[in-house]
Amino acid sequence: MKQPALHPLLLALMLLGAAPAFAHGDETHKKTSSLVKMEQKEWGIGGDAKAVKRTIEVKMADNMRFTPDRIEVKEGDTLRIRLSNTGQVLHEMVLGTAPVLAEHAALMKRFPNMEHDEPYMAHVPAGKTGEIIWTFNRPGEFDFACLIAGHFEAGMVGKIVVTPTAGAEK
């Protein structure tokens, strides 16, 4: 029986000795800008640290809550969201829309070791800190959540309200 051919990208990564980073392991995930694609999303785009207008401190705890669980920002602002995991288990923050987060949470339940490293998410081990730098370049109401199995379902969610800049079209 003939074996199927390896996908060229997978073969190239294997030959380069690239090791995948699992999103929900015990290691801190660092964003590697050369590998992370900055892509426009409905809720904004990855930000440049030099453009940060404001830093928001957000605590993540084992009571399955973010504090604060509501963030207000002006359209066009780049925020540094500094995350502090005050709990005893791994937590994460993922920015998105309610439907996108619900779909991703369902995938995480099915594939708990799914690999992902996007600029709109941060995985923070117990007692550690992390950050997301994000440009909110579209007005609207968006969401964030911890998508680790069980956390989302327990209500570990929040809201981001992006107000339009003066004179911007709605």
Results as ranks from 00 to 15, higher is better:
149 A>K: 02
53 K>T: 14
2 K>T: 14
30 K>W: 06
106 A>Q: 15
148 I>Y: 15
71 I>P: 04
97 T>M: 04
136 F>S: 01
46 G>Q: 11
19 A>D: 10
164 P>G: 08
120 Y>P: 07
48 D>Y: 09
21 A>N: 07
90 L>G: 00
6 L>A: 12
87 G>I: 07
168 A>T: 11
91 H>L: 04
49 A>Y: 10
170 K>Y: 10
126 A>M: 08
144 F>E: 01
26 D>E: 09
80 R>D: 01
156 M>N: 13
9 L>V: 13
67 T>V: 13
57 E>N: 10
57 E>A: 11
72 E>K: 12
40 Q>M: 10
57 E>G: 10
34 S>W: 03
170 K>L: 15
72 E>V: 04
120 Y>T: 08
149 A>N: 07
123 H>P: 00
57 E>H: 10
124 V>G: 00
16 L>F: 07
133 I>C: 03
30 K>P: 01
17 G>A: 06
41 K>H: 03
148 I>A: 02
168 A>H: 08
168 A>Y: 03
111 F>V: 03
71 I>F: 01
25 G>K: 00
73 V>W: 04
161 V>P: 02
168 A>E: 03
143 D>T: 11
85 N>H: 04
124 V>L: 03
165 T>W: 00
25 G>T: 02
141 E>M: 13
148 I>S: 08
13 L>A: 11
131 E>H: 10
158 G>A: 12
129 T>N: 06
140 G>L: 07
94 V>S: 11
110 R>N: 08
41 K>Q: 12
109 K>H: 05
79 L>Y: 06
158 G>I: 09
75 E>I: 10
92 E>M: 03
141 E>G: 09
12 A>Y: 12
159 K>A: 15
13 L>D: 10
55 T>H: 14
88 Q>R: 03
4 P>S: 11
90 L>P: 01
30 K>F: 01
135 T>H: 00
86 T>N: 02
37 K>T: 01
96 G>F: 00
15 L>N: 08
85 N>L: 07
125 P>N: 01
28 T>K: 01
144 F>D: 05
135 T>M: 11
139 P>R: 09
12 A>W: 13
43 W>D: 13
25 G>P: 03
125 P>S: 04
169 E>L: 15
103 E>M: 12
145 A>E: 06
14 M>G: 11
14 M>A: 15
142 F>D: 04
150 G>E: 09
